[in-house]
Simulated assay, not measured.
Amino acid sequence: MRTILITGGAGFIGGNFVHFLMEKTAVRVVNLDALTYAGNLDTLAAFNNEPRHIFIHGDISDRALVKQLLTEYAVDAVVNFAAESHVDRSIDGPAAFIDTNISGTFQLLEATRAYWLSCAAAKQAAFRFLHVSTDEVYGSLGATGLFTETTPYAPNSPYSASKAASDHLVRAWFHTYGLPVLTTNCSNNYGPYQFPEKLIPLILLKAQRGEPLPIYGDGGNIRDWLFVGDHCRAIWRVLEAGIAGEVYNVGGNSERTNLEVVDTLCGLLDELLPDSPQRPHAQFKQFVSDRPGHDRRYAIDASKLQRELGWQPLETFESGLRKTVQWYLDNPAWCARVMDGSYRGERLGMEQ
């Protein structure tokens, strides 16, 4: 049985990837998560009694712990989701992003390299370290064009700068030490189990309560939206067939302005909650001052992944958003438990 070490596997994308592995494959999952505010064991509750899922509460910065897990479970691959990931939080408190995204990635790479060097030649050749990153490292696009794997890095927030640094570390460990790494840079994810500081779950929960729906600036900032299930399929495909040292961009081919996202979401709520006293939910839209350094447009060219590895998204934005809204409506208890007082939907990212 292959064993994969997942870091950050109680978070949004990592947790969805654990679900994918447990439901679609036969691998054993060793799940390491520090359980910061966005890590949630409720996301993993379905696997509490599943011997193929081993949860460890710990930090990627703990090099001794990571090396122990790699050795004890004879790990065949590492997939690194562990990261501080919210731009607004990085504006208010950048130190945690430097600690986790840069220093933590360094410690994880070093622990993995030491373990990899101890493996037999055949296991070394098959081993992979997959680093999950973001399109935000590329900066902001103009009205046209797409980010490719060769787009120069130009990060504009503490978050994206810290992720850019981690990407460079991963690249260096391949070119300097030969560690067989893979990097994926994805566009904006959405779907089940997303912490409600991000746009879609935040708007969804506020709209149901009849609270103001904050839209930054003029609402014209554009993102390429990727359903998290499609992203999980892409990560698995890259892990299976990606070439060591290569970078693969993952996008949903679904560009939307923030205003379009909010309007579509409100329309779905109107349809799915016909008896809601808040209808029409769009009445609560409120334009607020933009956040500092807010990139205007991101868009991903995922043609390399499609051409070389045969992946493409299965969900349109409309089908994926409908699944997402329905999941949140069906899981109010999950939403209530994650809103435990550490975050109540307040405005973040105002520090200048």
Rank of each mutant, 00 (worst) to 15 (best):
A83T: 10
D33V: 06
H175P: 00
V228G: 03
V247C: 13
I91A: 05
T144F: 09
D88I: 10
D33A: 01
E23C: 08
W327S: 02
E271Y: 08
I102C: 12
R209Q: 15
E271C: 05
I56D: 00
A126H: 10
F317V: 13
C186D: 02
T144M: 08
L41T: 14
S187L: 04
A111G: 11
R322C: 06
H175Q: 08
F195Q: 09
G245P: 01
T183P: 09
K198L: 14
A172K: 05
F97T: 10
A121L: 14
M1E: 09
R256S: 00
L314Q: 13
A172W: 10
R322I: 04
V66W: 06
R28M: 12
H57A: 10
L69R: 05
S133A: 09
Q326G: 03
N156F: 01
D88N: 13
C266W: 11
G345D: 03
V66S: 04
I13D: 00
T105L: 10
F12M: 08
H53M: 01
T134L: 00
F129P: 04
P274M: 03
P196S: 08
Q194I: 05
L272S: 01
S289Q: 14
V288I: 15
W225Q: 06
L146I: 00
F174W: 12
G219T: 02
G217T: 00
N40Q: 15
T134D: 05
C119G: 03
Q107P: 02
L309Y: 06
S187D: 00
K198N: 11
C186K: 15
R344V: 07
G93C: 13
E136D: 03
V238H: 04
N185F: 12
I215M: 11
A234P: 07
Y37W: 11
W327D: 02
R52N: 10
P277D: 03
G15H: 06
A164Q: 12
D295S: 15
E351Y: 15
A95R: 12
G219A: 05
A74N: 15
T176F: 15
Y115A: 06
S157H: 08
A83W: 06
E351L: 13
S276M: 09
A154K: 12
E149V: 10
Q352F: 15
G341L: 01
V87T: 14
Y193I: 00
L226S: 03
T144W: 00
R347S: 07
N16L: 10
V228H: 07
L265I: 10
F17P: 05
Y343I: 07
L69M: 07
I13C: 07
P155F: 09
A77P: 03
H168M: 15
